[in-house]
Design a binder for these strands. Structure first.
Length: 813
RNA sequence: GCCCGGGUGGCGAAAUGGUCAGACGCGGGGGACUUAAAAUCCCCUGACCGCGAGGUCAUGUGGGUUCGAUUCCCACCCCGGGUACCA
């Protein structure tokens, strides 16, 4: 009882597996990660993009993304907010279906297995997920409401049916998604893909183009993401111009360059343009038919990829409303029916594509625009398509000499008077085709009745359950596999009762994910898709973190759905995500990870070997979260050592004596730094700052005071939650470290009485001087001259002295 | 082609007008402890010249602005991502 131990007391080695198991169990048992949604103060909805539960299990990239979001959420919780961090599975869709076909199993069997595996992995990774609100999109309790959503859009006139082209494989006799068409060939059988017109369901996203654009200015989103959306919406200002055509209907074109109309030497229609049949003259009929046939037997993808100009003359002749001259009307597949009016005027002098076309078909090329100092008659060897505001019109009658921006307005006004023009704003954003001629998705809840037409399935009859059929593969019938099941698709009309047919298409996977964030808080409710009051309390999502590969489609569709629900009176807000941050991509040793390269990192093995805390922290240490990182196998040891040192410090620290003031200063600087870096997603520098502190804390095997190490545990907790809980417990914490708050720093400790000023002579640093914190320029200069190493460079009177208060003095000789 | 990112030590990366650029970590070298090794701890580590003090060069390339540039401007090269006949 009297012996003073001569060796330091032993303490258990840091054993991540054991610690992590204990705390994960405790979190689950005590519901630590399931906040009280109705009463919790200061709600903070921390959302991460839910995964598609692939057969391969959780990818390290998923883990990188989720960990970054989780750290943000855990930090917010330590700021005293009630943080809701839900998770779910995007389990419907073509990816799962294709995988099921590949491995020869049914997606309905595969999905629960994959989901179970993901659950295990996500739990093992120590994410602060509220599993009590899990959402699985392929579960009838979820897709019931996806179908409900379709019905609301239908009621609001936002869903409609029209014919649209799909990729069709004539060999497999099935519809293909764009990504299944490789170079114009079917990815499975290599047959040449063609296009087919099918009646499909669309959502009127285009109705919201301007609002989707306008609202964006108020969103706190990564700028790259906003820019991607702006480009996608593609607003462009221009005009509709109308051309008379002899013996036929007028042709209206869209152009952003009405000023160039004097140079329009032909008209071109898309092959699908409705006026084509009317315009063709008997003499040209055979040639035109042949061309139309050719464009039809081309898949949707390669038509856009193949830039070689083709076309055919219709025989029709239009009148250029500006010049009054006759111009030929052509058909060419470089004109897209889905953009503008499906017809353009050919202005070869000032449009690259038109120039190519003119060269190929020997059409006249007229210059109507020239640089300010240019020659009106200089021949064009390529299209002059500059956007310079100083460009002037030439060869354009009364408009010659006018600058382009002014001419755009003047020409439209002039033609407008004659009824030949209307100013319009056009968007490239198309309506959203949600029909999929597939099996693994929510059936679209519509019934076709011979006497009533399309009838929505009454809401009290939802869900329209996806039947469990064995032959779920797409086959040679050319329509959805569901159409092969009479017993499923033959139903009485809800209105008149006569035998009718169900819609056999399922909806797009993107529809499942366009509203899942609304479902989470209400996931346990079977009577409503989302509870109005609870939604009001938790949404819009406070912070959404996800990959920028979804910058356009998923985020745009989610915004669209939110707007529609708002306008339908279901929501009080019309933007779903207040703050969005795109994380970067994780690569390995400079290369993209892929199965074919065999360089995929397996998170399970890493967690087993190093622990979840080390892996989490290491992933965040690789680089800027928003830029991604380069995963290298050797680096994780440094992070593990860092956690080991924290573990050691917690066990070795004493409560006698006082903390070292110098260490405390560093501690408070670290608290400040980490507290500023985490909300800005500067995780790598936050970790570096903590490492620096640990180096100071343990320098020269000094004795560590408990008060020097305790706040560090709170700082490291978002990154390494398990070891933090364990350490907090050891240091006498009575609650979870995540309910212990965040340490405050004392600003007074961060300023010292003396400051070090760099002294440069002619811009070269020659030394530093230590002066009082209120020193003036003169004080610093005087002090500098006392330093021989500085003074020797100062010879005579300086020409100039620049003083940056508190930082630097530059003496210019 | 167009729109975004990004080029800094042997490597992952810090610092975006101001203290010899390179924090933090990996890797490497040296030392302490140990019978030895591991672990741990301490020191060094951009390149070149010099015994040394010290000096020279260095943030993709070339210009420019400035007392001062990795940081701002212009041109170009390379890498990554997105998008693509959008009139």
């Amino acid at each position: 009882m009297s012996d003073t131990p001569s060796v330091p007391p032993e303490f258990p080695a840091y054993d991540p597996a054991a610690i992590e198991a204990i705390w994960q169990h405790r979190w689950a048992e005590q519901g630590t990660n399931s906040p009280e949604l109705w009463t919790g103060a200061d709600p903070y909805y921390q959302l991460m993009m839910f995964p598609y539960p692939s057969g391969e299990g959780l990818h390290i990239g998923n883990l990188f993304a989720f960990t970054g979001a989780d750290i943000h959420g855990r930090f917010q919780r330590q700021q005293g907010r009630t943080v809701f961090e839900p998770i779910g599975f995007d389990s419907f869709g073509i990816q799962t279906e294709n995988y099921a076909i590949k491995v020869g199993q049914h997606p309905a069997q595969l999905t629960p297995r994959n989901v179970a595996r993901f659950r295990g992995q996500l739990t093992r990774a120590g994410l602060m997920l509220d599993w009590s609100k899990e959402v699985i999109t392929s579960d009838p309790s979820y897709y019931k409401w996806t179908q409900w959503l379709f019905l609301q859009l239908y009621k609001q006139g936002m869903a409609y049916k029209k014919a649209a082209a799909v990729n069709w494989c004539p060999n497999d006799k099935t519809v293909l998604a764009n990504e299944q068409v490789i170079d114009g060939h079917c990815e499975r059988c290599d047959a040449l893909v063609e296009q087919r017109l099918l009646e499909q369901w669309f959502f009127r996203t285009s109705h919201y183009s301007q609002r989707l654009l306008d609202n964006m200015t108020a969103l706190d989103w990564s700028e790259i993401t906003r820019q991607a959306q702006r480009n996608w919406i593609g607003r462009s200002e221009g005009a509709h111009l109308t051309f008379r055509v002899a013996n036929a209907h007028d042709v209206t074109v869209f152009t952003t360059r009405p000023d160039t109309i004097f140079g329009a030497t032909w008209l071109v229609l898309a092959p699908e343009h409705p006026l084509v049949a009317q315009l063709v003259t008997p003499a040209q009929l055979a040639e035109v038919d042949a061309y139309l046939e050719r464009t039809k037997t081309q898949d949707v993808v390669s038509r856009k990829v193949n830039k070689e100009k083709t076309g055919v003359f219709t025989g029709a002749v239009g009148i250029n409303p500006a010049t009054g001259k006759p111009i030929p009307v052509w058909i060419a597949d470089y004109v897209l029916m889905e953009y503008g009016t499906g017809a353009v005027m050919g202005v070869p002098g000032h449009d690259e594509r038109d120039f190519e076309f003119a060269e190929k078909f020997a059409l006249p090329i007229i210059r109507v625009v020239t640089p300010a100092d240019g020659d009106a008659d200089a021949p064009l060897t390529e299209a002059y398509a500059s956007k310079l505001e100083s460009d002037l019109l030439v060869n354009s009658a009364q408009f010659s000499g006018m600058p382009v921006p002014q001419a755009k307005k003047a020409v439209v006004a002039w033609l407008e008077e004659r009824g030949n023009a209307t100013p319009v704003i056009n968007y490239r954003l198309n309506d959203w085709c949600i029909s999929r001629q597939r099996y693994w998705g929510p059936p679209i809840p519509i019934i076709y009745c011979d006497s009533c037409g399309p009838v929505p399935v009454p809401e009290d009859q939802l869900p329209v359950v996806l039947p469990l059929i064995e032959d779920f593969r797409p086959d040679d019938s050319g329509i959805s596999p569901l159409a092969r099941h009479d017993e499923w698709y033959r139903v009485p009309c809800p209105t008149c009762g006569i035998m009718s047919r169900r819609e056999t298409d399922v909806s797009d996977n993107f529809l499942d994910s366009a509203w899942y964030f609304l479902r989470y808080p209400s996931a346990d409710r079977s009577d409503v898709p989302f509870d109005r009051a609870l939604t009001q309390r938790w949404l819009p999502v406070t912070t959404y973190i996800g990959g920028n590969e979804h910058a356009v489609l998923h985020l745009l569709y989610s915004r669209f759905i939110t707007m529609v629900l708002h306008d339908g009176g279901f929501l009080d807000f019309d933007e779903p995500f207040t703050r969005f941050r795109a994380h970067g991509m994780i690569i390995r040793e400079g290369a993209k990870m892929s199965k074919s390269k065999g360089n995929v990192v397996n998170p399970d093995e890493l967690i087993e070997r190093w622990g979840a805390d080390s892996l989490r922290t290491y992933l965040m240490f690789l680089g800027k979260y928003e830029e991604g990182g380069d995963y290298r196998d050797s680096g994780i040891t440094g992070v593990r050592r860092f956690l080991d040192r924290i573990w050691g410090s917690v066990h070795e620290c004493v409560t006698t004596g006082e903390p070292d003031p110098a260490v405390l200063r560093k501690l408070h600087a670290t608290i400040k730094k980490v507290g500023e870096d985490i909300p800005a997603l500067g995780y790598n520098t936050a970790i570096a700052a903590m490492m620096e502190y640990v180096n100071v804390l343990r320098a020269s095997e000094r004795t560590i005071h408990r008060d020097e190490v305790r706040p560090l545990i709170q700082l490291v907790a978002p990154f390494a939650p398990h070891i933090a809980e364990a350490c907090w417990d050891i240091l006498g914490g009575h609650e979870s470290v995540f309910d212990s708050g965040w340490p405050a720093y004392d600003p007074a400790l961060l300023v010292s009485d003396t400051i070090t000023i760099a002294v440069q002579v002619n811009g070269k640093t020659r030394g530093t001087v230590s002066v009082g914190k209120d020193a003036t320029q003169a004080d610093v200069y005087a002090a500098a001259l006392q330093e021989p190493n500085i003074a020797k460079f100062v010879d005579g009177e300086p020409k100039k002295i620049i003083y940056v208060a508190g930082r630097l003095l530059n003496v210019v000789m």
